[in-house]
Design a protein around this nucleic acid. Structure first.
Lengths: 119, 119
DNA sequence: CGGCATCCCACGAGATACTG
DNA sequence: CAGTATCTCGTGGGATGCCG
């Protein structure tokens, strides 16, 4: 039995999904990568995500200590986001996941092509 | 640019999320693991997921070739689910993800305890 | 520029009932 | 037992407008 915050989890996968399973979270983490990005840059690199959703997911990621938020006290405002150390430790795993995905579709497409040329 | 089915993806992470990013998908895959489970067994191991949701996610996983579904033609019906080869190839990555999650909360809790004893 | 606050709708998902 | 089908409701999330 695992505990984090005020929630208890039956298994580690549930816990992990709460951390990075949000609709856009892993995509955000992945796009941040080793970079530090301004809010507007992040928006541009994730056009599918609305501003509201992006803000919301960023807040949750920050709360859980996966990313860091740095506010420049100036006008006009400037806010930068970057991965925390914990966030960075996740990057290699996300990279593996991506490779797996690419591999998976490549094989799937290869199988389909072979089937077509059989007809 | 990647293509799978009739969808095009800007980046591999998007593609991967479409495959396993569904609300319960990775949890289902993880619980299946090396086992073959009947529908009812799966339900019992995932009490948070309603029957409707479970069926739906299973269908999508099957469509994408991540799991296999075997129907025994008998009354009462019996249906078994197991990971496909592609699905099994994902298991090690999910395991790493779990470890990361455990590690993450352990460190977070340790930090919190240290802070408390400082007061 | 980087947000909240508000309004509002669509659809995700639960509950229930029925079937091969 | 392992599903579909139907109805329903709550809320996730889009659109818009305002603020430091």
């Amino acid at each position: 039995m695992l505990k984090f915050g005020n929630t208890e989890y039956q298994c580690a996968m549930e816990l992990t999904l709460d951390l990075i399973g949000g609709k856009w979270k892993s995509l955000i983490l992945w796009h941040l990568g080793e970079n530090t990005l301004r809010f507007s840059e992040l928006r541009r690199s994730l056009p599918q995500v609305t501003q509201k959703m992006l803000t919301q997911q960023l807040r949750e990621l920050e709360e859980n200590g996966l990313i860091e938020r740095f506010v420049y006290r100036q006008v006009p405002p400037k806010v930068e986001y970057s991965l925390s150390e914990a966030g960075r430790s996740l990057l290699p795993i996300l990279a593996t996941l991506c490779e797996w995905g690419i591999n998976f579709v490549n094989e799937a497409n290869a199988v389909k092509k072979a089937a077509l040329s059989d007809e």
